[in-house]
C-alpha cells in the first residue's frame, strides 16, 4: 500500500515535469515558426534575459518594493476583513450596510478601481490600496461564512455548560473558521498579486515590477516583458506556498493545543 502511494506520487511528479516540458516545447516551436523576438521570444532567450536582469541591483529593489506593498495591502485586508466579519455576525445592521459595498467591490473590474484610486492616492501606494480592496471582500465573506456555519448545537452546549467566552472562541469558533480562512488566504494571495501588479502597471511607481513591465512594453522589449512575468509567477507561487505552510502549521498547532 505504502509503495503504491509512493509510486503514485512519483508518477504524478513525472507527469507534472513532462507537462511543463511539453508546454515549453510548444512555446519553443511557436517562437521558431514565428521567428520574431518582438512577438514571441524563445524560452531560452527569456531565461537569458531573466539572468541578465537578476544581476542588476534595481531588479531586486523592484521585487522588494512591489512585494512589500502588495503584502502590506494583503495583511491590511486580512486584519480588516476578519474584524468586519466579526462585527457583521454580531450586528445585523452593520452586515446589511456593509454587504452592499462588498458585493460592489467584487463585481467591479480592477481597471475601474485602479483609475479611480489614482485620483485619491499616489502611484506608489496604489498597489497597497488595490490589493487591499481586492482581497478584503474575500476574507470578509469567508470568515463570516465560517462564523455563521459554526455548529449551533455545540454553541448551545457551551451555553448550557457555562463555558468561558475565551474557550468558546478558541475551541469552537476558531476551528470552524480556520478552513474558510485558509482557503480565503490562498485565493486572496493569488488575487492580490494579479491586482497589485495591474495597479503598478497603470500607476507606474518608480522601482516596481509594474513600472519595469510598463517600460519594457512601451519599448517593445518582449523578452523583458516575459522575464518580468516569469518573476511575478515565481514570487506569487513562492508566497502562496509559504503562507499556506504557515497557515497550516498554525491551524494544526492551534488544534493540538
Amino acid at each position: 500500500m505504502k509503495i503504491n502511494i509512493q509510486n503514485k506520487k512519483k508518477n504524478k511528479r513525472i507527469i507534472k515535469i513532462l507537462s511543463v516540458s511539453f508546454w515549453l516545447f510548444i512555446w519553443f516551436v511557436l517562437s521558431s515558426i514565428i521567428n520574431m523576438e518582438i512577438i514571441l521570444p524563445s524560452p531560452y532567450k527569456v531565461v537569458i534575459t531573466l539572468l541578465e536582469l537578476s544581476i542588476k541591483k534595481d531588479f531586486w529593489i523592484s521585487i522588494l518594493l512591489s512585494s512589500s506593498r502588495i503584502i502590506i495591502g494583503f495583511l491590511l485586508a486580512l486584519i480588516v476583513g476578519i474584524i468586519m466579519a466579526i462585527i457583521s455576525c454580531n450586528l445585523w445592521v452593520f452586515e446589511t450596510i456593509i454587504d452592499v459595498p462588498m458585493k460592489l467591490i467584487k463585481v467591479t473590474p480592477i481597471a475601474s478601481f485602479v483609475i479611480l484610486a489614482l485620483l485619491w492616492v499616489k502611484g506608489k501606494n496604489l498597489s497597497v490600496l488595490i490589493s487591499f480592496l481586492m482581497v478584503m471582500p474575500i476574507i470578509y465573506t469567508n470568515v463570516k461564512e465560517g462564523i455563521k456555519t459554526t455548529d449551533a448545537k455545540l454553541l448551545e452546549m457551551a451555553r448550557m455548560f457555562k463555558i468561558k467566552k475565551i474557550n468558546i472562541i478558541n475551541k469552537i469558533y476558531i476551528p470552524s473558521i480556520m478552513p474558510h480562512l485558509s482557503s480565503a488566504i490562498t485565493v486572496g494571495l493569488g488575487f492580490c498579486w494579479k491586482s497589485g501588479i495591474a495597479a503598478e502597471v497603470i500607476g507606474i511607481p518608480k522601482k516596481s515590477i509594474g513600472f519595469n513591465l510598463y517600460e519594457a512594453k512601451i519599448n517593445l522589449m518582449t523578452k523583458e516583458v516575459m522575464a518580468w512575468t516569469v518573476v511575478i509567477i515565481i514570487i506569487s507561487i513562492f508566497f502562496e506556498k509559504v503562507v499556506f505552510f504557515i497557515v497550516e502549521r498554525w491551524r494544526i498547532k492551534w488544534i493540538n493545543t
Binding site: K153, L154, M157, F161, I163, N167, K171, I172, I255
Partner: peptide, 28 residues
C-alpha cells in the same frame, strides 16, 4: 435553568479535542 448539566440526544462534543479536554473545558 442556569444550573443544569446535560447529556444531549446528540453527543455535542468538541470533535478535535480529546475526552479529557472536552470534560475539562466545562469543569475547569
Amino acid at each position: 435553568p442556569n444550573s443544569i448539566g446535560v447529556v444531549f440526544q446528540e453527543d455535542r462534543l468538541i470533535e478535535h479535542l480529546n475526552a479529557v479536554e472536552n470534560i475539562y473545558v466545562v469543569n475547569n
